[in-house]
Write a protein that binds this DNA or RNA. Structure first.
Lengths: 140, 140
DNA sequence: ATTTGTGCAAATCGTTTGCATCTGA
DNA sequence: TCAGATGCAAACGATTTGCACAAAT
């Protein structure tokens, strides 16, 4: 059920890192594969660290943090702070919003076109909007 | 420019605590006064702690955290996590949203009626919406 | 060769907790 | 009286940092 050419996924990820101006080191490549191999994901540093360990990818937690921040600064990821206890990194960097399951801490994307904000007051002091986040908090 | 009866503010705050089922102790009263005396505010635990110190109100940081959480659980405050580094507590517990000044970390309220969300997808799994937060992040 | 990452362990920061002591009803 | 609060210092968990070593260009 998996592609027969195991390096196919690598090539894309490798190019993505290069294009972003990030050296494709063994660790970054492995982490990027975990992050971008399949559809969009929301991961914490700890989660990614554990996934890496599970796949016997040798990375330190500090390197996971470094990679996540490097990726974020190059717009390969978006950082989300919903719960003050820890940050999530979202592989979907496009315009979209989130459902947040309060009890489990899980996040789910809401496509931008599914939410329409009909009115917004002008930012005070003529400030520019960097982005608008809509978080729909769910009880269940 | 101030009311002539200095205890007037106290009485209200005292009642507010009592009504919420919280013992109006010296510390809670002092903190509540700092929080609710004038219009709506967004404060961090550290900020409130410093204000208290500045006014020679003797409270420990742990008590500030306790009080903030007690107030939050009784709906006198709302907790906001925007920046993973620390939490803010908002004295406005009604339906409203926020401007967030990324550089300064300051928050400003947006009245609920100034934002209209025209469409929202149904929550997955029939979950109930606990609330919808709109955060408008500002560059400047 | 040089620059850029990486690993590790120690440091930091916000927040929470345990427990002995106080205080409000 | 006595349940509920407080203070303090120690414990915590997430994140960061400093520095010697390793790998990429």
């Amino acid at each position: 059920m998996r592609p027969k050419i195991p390096s196919a996924g690598n090539v894309t990820v490798l190019e993505r890192l290069r294009d972003a101006g990030l050296r494709p080191t063994r660790q970054r490549l492995a982490l990027a594969k975990l992050l971008f191999a399949r559809g969009h994901r929301h991961v914490s540093a700890e989660q990614l660290f554990n996934e890496a360990k599970a796949q016997r990818v040798d990375v330190s937690l500090a390197t996971v943090y470094n990679a996540l921040h490097d990726f974020t600064s190059k717009d390969l990821l978006r950082e989300i702070s919903i719960d003050s206890s820890s940050s999530y990194f979202d592989t979907n960097t496009g315009d979209h919003h989130h459902f947040y399951f309060e009890q489990s801490g899980r996040l789910e994307d809401i496509a931008a076109h599914q939410v329409s904000i009909a009115a917004l007051p002008a930012p005070p002091g003529g400030a520019k909007i960097s982005r608008v986040d809509v978080i729909v908090r769910l009880k269940g």
